[in-house]
Design a binder for these strands. Structure first.
Lengths: 229, 229
DNA sequence: CGCGCTATTGAATTGTTTCAATTTAGGTGG
DNA sequence: CCACCTAAATTGAAACAATTCAATAGCGCG
């Protein structure tokens, strides 16, 4: 785990983060002065629900999964975070401990920004707050879509939706998952065995082609989309 | 459905809403000038996913359910809103149409505040933004808890959690649900039949006592809490 | 190239849903 | 205030989907 003062790495941290686009260079530098960068290896824990922090953790490179784990060891993934997105944002405004565990899905560089600095920046520049509110809105929307998925729709629908979303995100019918199938299952609230069976079924129907452990090629997008209705 | 200019009803709208406590009287009056109050009867629809609006809908009196409905007619309740809480807040900052349907669970008075006024107030008074962010944080936390519930925990656990939360909210072991059992089932992602069976089981075990259609008395809180772990 | 971790497959079991029938609650009108 | 009536809730039995446990297969990292 490497640590450095952020002004050493010009292209890092807030230069990547849409939320800070309203800041002047001086303001950006101000925030950077008190922030640090850390690198996590694949599988490494970034924080747990036991961690208490009032900082903002920005993903600079790599991918992070946020998840909850039950006492029986069952995991529910809440969100996968990509570069430019941030975590720990809830404790920033709610004074509560971390609500989830965070793990690096691959080698990941995180920039840790002082929470106090953020609040200061908001007071000086309310447009940042509105930008934050936009991000939060989208997160609520996404979370509520997830509730809808898990609560209303059956497993095949959830799988189809996830595959199609991933394809949309990569803008290709050829998908390399950034997470394991086990994680995939934990995202949609099922077991890896069930996911495995359903994916095989999709392949048998000629809707997708599976190859390797993390590759899915969409062959019949229309049939997958039909499941969503 | 009654409509009136809000300055007619002094104790309504923003006087109830924690979010606006940082506003001066003049600022409050300013917002009230462009807002209206509407009253909805039990079961009445307040808006649907087809409604597009950039206003903030504040619950003044009564209760509101926010829900999503699948093409097969299955309903998933996302949230129950109490006086002082607001809806439509997502479209306010994300420019998207309403993400859910909203129904009055009882006679409900709603105050509709102009979205533009809110944004203006935020620019003039960033503390409002931080207050908004706090509320949003809590909403994300709640939504993510719901994902955890539905994704990881079995139905008995979800029921126990809901009962205990309601008891906590009313600060009594004697609960009168503000929603039907059918809605209860839709909140936790199951059917009314399954809920009915599980509640009967809880009663048989001596954990709760059911009476009427909406009354639950907690007899053995410890046993219910054990289910949560 | 081999080992370990991840994924797949099978079979039995469990939990939940579905559909249908019945009961109960509680509002309405006499 | 009681009887009625409708909507809501309960119960039963059968069908189904998903999980669990266990055994096997295979990818991909070193």
């Amino acid at each position: 785990m490497r640590s450095c003062h952020c002004h050493d790495c010009e292209h890092a941290c807030i230069h990547n983060v849409p939320i800070f686009k309203y800041l002047t260079e001086v303001e950006k530098q101000q925030i950077l002065n008190t922030s640090i960068t850390k690198t996590y290896l694949k599988g490494e824990m970034i924080f747990s629900t036991l961690t208490s922090s009032s900082n903002l953790w920005v993903v600079n490179t790599g991918k992070v999964k946020l998840s909850k784990i039950s006492s029986e060891g069952k995991e529910q993934i809440i969100q996968i975070l990509h570069p430019g997105e941030f975590l720990g944002d809830l404790s920033l405004f709610s004074q509560e401990p971390m609500q989830s565990n965070a793990f690096a899905l691959q080698k990941t560089e995180i920039c840790i920004i002082n929470g106090h600095d953020i609040k200061q920046a908001i007071r000086q520049n309310p447009d940042i707050a509105i930008k934050f509110l936009e991000v939060y809105s989208k997160r609520i929307t996404k979370a509520e879509q997830m509730i809808e998925q898990i609560g209303i729709h059956d497993i095949e629908t959830r799988i189809a939706k996830t595959i199609l979303q991933e394809a949309d995100h990569l803008n290709s019918t050829d998908i390399t998952l950034p997470y394991s199938k086990t994680d995939f299952a934990s995202m949609i609230g099922t077991t890896r065995e069930t996911l495995s069976r359903k994916l095989s079924k999709f392949q048998d129907q000629g809707w997708i082609k599976l190859s390797g452990q993390r590759h899915i090629t969409i062959l019949d997008q229309d049939s997958l989309e039909e499941l969503l209705q």
